[in-house]
Design a protein around this nucleic acid. Structure first.
Length: 627
DNA sequence: CTCATACCTG
DNA sequence: CAGGTATGAG
């Protein structure tokens, strides 16, 4: 009694689900013949009365449907194919590209903003006076920009970004130490040196430090890759050790030529060092505070609309409209701009790294050097129509965090608003996976906050984490189910591509895919059961002509269907679905009236017809509102 | 054999 | 709606 849509099963079976990377498009072609065959059969059947001249919805539809659907099918295939190929390899190539894009620190040529400066003794000496000409606020700005730059990296980077900032400071200071040492030697060699001169020297030194931060990059970038790739050695190591006395943040070991310098640091200028550290801390905290404040200022918006896309005073170098991931990373890092080397990674790691999407969170064990920027992979098929939702989103969608559309930007989509708070769907898959924002916390070491003098910065972890780290669900929620039901109005046999596009916020594991398939299978089951029931009922009631079978919005059949798929009745069921329902009902009626239901697989032919009536799912299903 | 689905059941 | 099973295609 296994009635199956043979071609459907074939076309949508392995090639579709089992190998999602393969486009499931051939089915449509195969069905075409079947459909024609079917309609031929229908026209031959005693019940079929579909002369073109006759009126009525049935006649109006059939020819149109069979033709236009064919065309639509073609278009769909094309669209799907293009969309597919761009999204199919997203899991891999996008990651790679994103990593590249997101790692300005690894490629000094990409950034206006220096990420890492390692003034070599020679060049730093040469540029010393030039740097002194640069105003302090420029230096600060540079640092802030640097911070922002760091934010554009992945969430997993925040710790090391901070480290980098510290190291930058350290390096600058160290460089100045070297300069000062030189000066010291020179002056001591020449003669007297007053305490005032010492003080001036310190101030000069500090200015130089900041200027270094701002201006060093050009000459030192070439050193960065080495530093980045070889965490064990860094020109800034020496000072890091001394600097850590104030920040207690670094465990890096000084190496090589640094050690002698380090000795000098402590022996000759402890006070100066301390002063420098204090000033640096102050400046750093100010800069960080400003940047963080600006970020947080914009953060609450992220929860509710695209307006919340991160807009800060700070220049965001990276992205044009398409690079949502960059901005996402930006927000992701925003939460942890506090130089905390100990805590936040833990809270982030709590989030399960995504295996398929390589959502990698760097281990803290590598915090002592800049980790490779990790990319929060936004399962965001590149071809996805990035068009605004019809109900909201006047704000430009390019404002990032469009990848957050699922959770945070569903203004006006009341029926999806509770996505993030939705209860779990009863299922094995769900039971292990639904991420609740409340489960995430960002722990920032209070002492570090204190040390940074950022009392006003509130780490709104939920908001931040929600916005930055919840793009991908491991489980299907009730809202996903709801969405799937609404999708059923358009497609009874969604391809894996469509599913991925519409549920791009879900990690498409095998389980998830199977569950979605099962959902639609259940939907179809209910749908066909209703159809058969009403068709039989019509026969019993003596309906003699299929033209008398219509499915209107007031019909009992539609109400039953609507109750099932659109219980809240908050979705405008497309007319096309009514047509599909009507066609299906008539197919059942015809088959039953012909006694075909005695054939165990009598529904097969009906399935063949219906599966061809799938429409493209509206873009709003693909773009956002996961639920 | 695997795989995906239809069908049946709870 | 999901689990289990039967079926058929590859």
């Amino acid at each position: 009694m296994k009635e199956r849509c043979g071609s459907c099963t074939q076309a949508r079976g392995r090639s579709d689900w089992d190998e999602p990377l393969r486009l499931a498009g051939e089915g449509g072609l195969e069905y075409r013949g079947s459909q024609q065959e079917h309609y031929k059969y229908l026209s031959h059947s005693s019940c079929s009365s579909r002369p073109a001249a006759s009126s009525g919805p049935f006649n109006r539809q059939q020819p149109d449907v069979s033709v236009s659907l064919r065309k639509d099918s073609e278009d769909l295939k094309m669209l799907a194919e293009s969309a597919y190929f761009s999204s199919g390899d997203a899991g891999s190539s996008l990651i790679c590209s994103s990593q590249l894009e997101l790692s300005p620190s690894r490629n000094s040529t990409t950034g206006h903003l220096p990420t890492r400066r390692h003034p070599s003794p020679a060049s730093s000496s040469c540029g010393h006076h030039d740097w002194n000409l640069i105003r302090g606020h420029q230096a600060k700005r540079a640092r802030v920009e640097n911070i922002i730059k760091g934010m554009t990296s992945s969430p997993g980077m925040h710790c090391t970004d901070v480290m980098t900032i510290q190291h930058e400071e350290s390096d600058s200071m160290q460089e100045n130490e070297r300069i000062q040492d030189q000066e010291h030697v020179e002056k001591s060699g020449s003669g007297s040196k007053t305490a005032r001169k010492q003080l001036e020297s310190q101030h000069q030194h500090l200015r130089t430090s900041f200027n270094h931060v701002d201006g060093v990059t050009d000459t030192k970038d070439e050193k960065y890759p080495t530093w980045n790739d070889s965490p064990e050695t860094s020109p800034g190591d020496a000072f890091t050790d001394s600097y850590s006395e104030f920040e207690s943040s670094s465990s890096r070991k000084s190496q090589g030529w640094k050690k002698m310098k380090l000795m000098n640091h402590f022996q000759s200028k402890p006070e100066r060092l301390k002063l420098m550290a204090d000033v640096l801390k102050y400046e750093l905290s100010r800069a960080v505070s400003r940047s963080v404040d600006s970020i947080f200022k914009s953060m609450p918006l992220l929860q509710t609309s695209d307006e919340g896309s991160v807009e800060t005073d700070m220049p965001l170098q990276s992205s044009a409209g398409k690079d949502d991931k960059l901005r996402l990373s930006f927000s992701g890092n925003a939460e942890v701009q506090v130089p905390d080397v100990q805590t936040e990674a833990l809270s982030l790691v709590v989030q399960k790294p995504r295996l398929e999407n390589k959502f990698i969170l760097e281990s803290r064990s590598r915090a002592h050097h800049r980790t490779k920027p990790t990319v929060p992979f936004v399962h965001d098929p590149a071809v996805r129509e990035d068009q605004p939702s019809e109900k909201n989103h006047n704000a430009p969608r390019q404002h990032a965090l469009s990848c957050l559309q699922d959770g945070c930007s569903e203004v006006g989509q009341a029926k999806f608003d509770t996505h993030w708070n939705s209860i779990k769907v009863r299922s094995k898959v769900n039971s292990r996976s639904v991420r609740s924002p409340q489960t995430r916390t960002v722990s920032v070491d209070p002492s570090l906050l204190e040390s940074l003098r950022l009392p006003h910065v509130k780490i709104e972890s939920d908001c931040l984490v929600k916005n930055s780290l919840y793009m991908l669900n491991e489980g299907l929620t009730t809202n996903h189910l709801k969405k799937a039901k609404l999708m059923f109005f358009f497609t009874r046999y969604p391809s894996s591509l469509v599913l991925k596009m519409c549920f791009h916020d879900v990690q498409f594991t095998r389980c998830i895919t199977s569950q979605l398939i099962k959902w639609f299978s259940n939907f179809r089951e209910f749908f066909y059961i209703q159809m058969e029931k009403f068709a039989r009922h019509a026969l019993v009631e003596g309906v003699s002509d299929v033209r008398g079978l219509t499915v209107g919005r007031e019909s009992e059949l539609f109400r039953a269907l609507n109750m099932h798929y659109n219980k809240a009745n908050d979705f405008q069921v497309p007319d096309s679905f009514l047509e599909v329902a009507e066609i299906t009902l008539r197919e059942f009626y015809i088959s039953i009236s012909m006694g075909k239901d005695r054939d165990p697989s009598w529904k097969k032919s009906i399935y063949k017809v219906i599966c061809k009536l799938d429409r493209d799912v509206p873009a709003e299903f693909k773009g956002h509102h996961s639920g």
